[in-house]
């Protein structure tokens, strides 16, 4: 009895699915597979190799400092990094005094612990980077987690920064309605191809690196991408190191456990 009910129920669901399928197939045969401008012209991020990649990956502190310079000079006028505290910058190789100076140069809204009043004061090492007030329209995202919040991570950031170009003529020929609207900028690495942010890195030497590295657009894009890997995952180095030790230990312990297992089962034939 239960099996008859079951067969009827199964046929009911299958029939409903077949009906959906039939109409779906008719639609596809009429319209074809979806063909959108994003599918045709969106590009996957370029390859980017950073010192923090791989099992043994560590941060290149010099590069992170350069990336921080690019962030401060260029990105920081619109984008905040609110999850990062000034004290965290010691991981980039700055000493205590330098961190204090970087913090003091910023104004943060501090709460007076006695009265509870909020008032502006110079930043302390223990403060986080303050929010950035953006004057234009739109909502520039916070960058602290950006390399974890986008497919492709650091390579995406790097590709986006170096990917601005004229809208290809081919695109307009195929999709005449897809012209980049005024005020937006064509970038094939951006999900819908048209991004509100104008190209931020435009000329060589836009940032003067304190370590003397030549500040090409490509170099600046790489450095700031590396910096944003750090802001998103400051514990990456410790994670890699801990992981190597731990997995090394596990391999050793597992081999021992396997030998012990073989021992115990030695007399039981067939295993």
């Amino acid at each position: 009895m239960i099996r008859i009910f079951s067969i009827l129920a199964g046929l009911f669901f299958s029939a409903a699915l077949a009906w959906s399928l039939l109409l779906g197939v008719i639609n596809v045969s009429k319209d074809g597979l979806p063909h959108t401008v994003e599918k045709a012209f969106h590009e996957h991020p370029k390859e980017l190799h950073l010192a923090s990649d791989g099992f043994f990956g560590k941060f290149d502190k010099q590069q992170l400092q350069r990336g921080f310079q690019v962030y401060s000079k260029v990105c920081a006028s619109c984008h905040a990094i609110k999850h990062v505290a000034f004290r965290d910058l010691e991981a980039l190789g700055y000493n205590e005094a330098e961190v204090k100076a970087i913090a003091a140069a910023q104004t943060v809204a501090g709460k007076d612990p006695l009265t509870g009043a909020i008032k502006d004061r110079p930043g302390l090492a223990s403060d986080h980077f303050p929010p950035v007030v953006y004057a234009g329209t739109g909502n520039p995202p916070d960058l602290s987690l950006i390399t974890k919040a986008r497919h492709g991570g650091a390579a995406y950031v790097y590709s986006l920064l170096t990917g601005y170009e004229e809208q290809p003529a081919k695109l307009l020929k195929q999709f005449p309605d897809a012209k980049t609207p005024d005020g937006l900028h064509y970038n094939p690495y951006f999900a819908n191809l048209n991004i509100a942010m104008p190209a931020p890195l435009t000329s060589e030497g836009q940032v003067t690196y304190s370590d003397g590295t030549k500040a090409t657009v490509d170099q600046m894009a790489k450095d700031v991408s590396a910096f944003l890997v750090w802001t998103a995952e400051p514990k990456l180095e410790k994670r890699h190191q801990t992981g190597l030790w731990w997995i090394g230990f596990l391999l050793f312990a597992t081999v021992l456990a396997y030998m012990s297992y073989r021992n115990i089962w030695a007399e039981k034939k067939g295993h």
Binding site: F249, F252, A253, M259
Partner: peptide, 19 residues
């Protein structure tokens, strides 16, 4: 020899647990 391997395996598990 057998005892030794079994004891070593159990000890390794203990070390892992403490870690």
């Amino acid at each position: 020899r057998r005892d030794f391997i079994n004891i070593a395996a159990v000890s390794a598990a203990g070390v892992g647990g403490i870690a």
